[in-house]
């Protein structure tokens, strides 16, 4: 069970901007075990998507690059391999699902052609074999009448159907790892429920590991085994899902959980809030970035808190103000 599939160690990803080299991901470490689902949660700009894009090397070019750290996947360090080698892994051993299916699909090619491509490229099938395998994939993601649908263009399908196609694309070559970046955010709740159910079922069937990136704590609670909470480009807390929801230790995680209205919160009451907002990338301090948001002063802003394991499998960025009873 505990075999590690992906190990991200002190990853730093930065972008060249007019304001200089800015670190969007600042020494992020986590690992994903076989068959496990790891959730990455955080607000816009916290670096969760950049982390994912760094793993599969799909950073915006030429501005974005990994400047430090290691990404170990099946005995290879993805941070240092060439683009050509990465192409053999991406779509084959690592599948990617993006938020907006319309941008992940090519509007001028039929569904069948896009699905076949992976089989031809990675599995060496001929066109006919790839086409048949594609129909099988559509069946797997429960697309009705797959023999007809395979000849459709993306715009002929609804949002939910398109997202199923993207899932089919990600699963096509039976990857060891799926990276899903907000896979259901653009969908309605009833369709979201179908899609999450589908991903889970296929994942169990194929024994795939997954990194699920989302801002929706409900989705995290229902699908993940372990959770990474990111703030200001850093992992501020990481723990098994039950720990995160029932024993959060960092003030930011606590605030995030409290500020969400639940179905059992008394109606029309003032919700607890996290004051202020995330500082922009160029203004980030070296020290605790949540203290920066809370307008605290002094040494906490200058010294970077240690990222440490405070109880078994429960890691926090141990800021003495944000984490009680260290």
């Amino acid at each position: 069970m505990s075999e590690v599939l992906l190990d991200v160690r002190k990853l730093i990803t930065a972008f060249d901007t007019d304001a200089g080299l800015l670190r969007a991901v600042d020494q992020v470490s986590f690992s994903v075990k076989k068959r496990q689902t790891l959730g990455i949660v955080g607000e816009s700009g916290c670096g969760k998507s950049v982390t994912a894009m760094s793993i599969v090397k799909l950073l915006p070019q030429p501005s974005g690059r990994i400047i430090e750290g290691e990404v170990w996947f099946k005995e290879r360090n993805l941070a240092t391999i060439s683009a050509a080698e990465m192409r053999k892994i991406r779509g084959n051993e690592i599948g990617v699902i993006f938020q907006e299916p319309m941008t992940a699909l090519n509007p001028v090619h039929r569904i069948g052609k896009q699905l076949s491509e992976g089989f031809i490229l990675h599995k060496g099938m001929n066109k006919k074999e790839a086409w048949d395998a594609s129909i099988e994939m559509l069946k797997l993601v429960r697309i009705p009448a797959p023999e007809q649908r395979i000849g459709d263009y993306p715009h002929q399908l609804s949002g939910g159907m398109r997202q199923r196609i993207v899932i089919a694309l990600a699963l096509a070559c039976r990857p060891d790892l799926i990276i899903a970046d907000e896979p259901t955010t653009a969908l309605d709740v009833t369709v979201q429920a179908q899609i999450l159910d589908l991903i889970k079922e296929r994942q169990e069937q194929l024994g795939t590991s997954m990194i699920l990136i989302t801002h929706d704590l409900g989705v995290i609670a229902e699908t993940c085994d372990e959770v990474v909470v990111m703030y200001g480009g850093r992992v501020i807390e990481r723990a098994p899902v039950d720990e995160i929801f029932h024993n959060p230790r960092h003030a930011y995680t606590k605030g995030l959980l409290a500020s969400m209205p639940h179905l059992d919160t008394p109606r029309k009451t003032i919700l607890p809030v996290i004051p202020g907002m995330v500082a922009s990338l160029q203004d980030f301090v070296t020290g605790c970035r949540f203290c920066q948001r809370m307008k605290r002063e002094g040494a906490v802003l200058r010294e970077r808190p240690l990222y440490q394991e405070i109880s078994p499998r429960h890691w926090v960025e141990a800021c003495p103000v944000c984490v009680e009873s260290l």
Binding site: P144, G159, V191, A193, A221, E222, F245, H262
Partner: peptide, 25 residues
């Protein structure tokens, strides 16, 4: 009922029965 059952609950301990709908609106 289906709509409410589809909301993900932010509590991993919540055990709920989900009514899965087929198809889209």
């Amino acid at each position: 009922q289906a709509l409410l059952s589809a909301i993900p609950v932010a509590d991993p301990r919540a055990k709920k029965k989900r009514i899965l709908l087929e198809g889209d609106v």
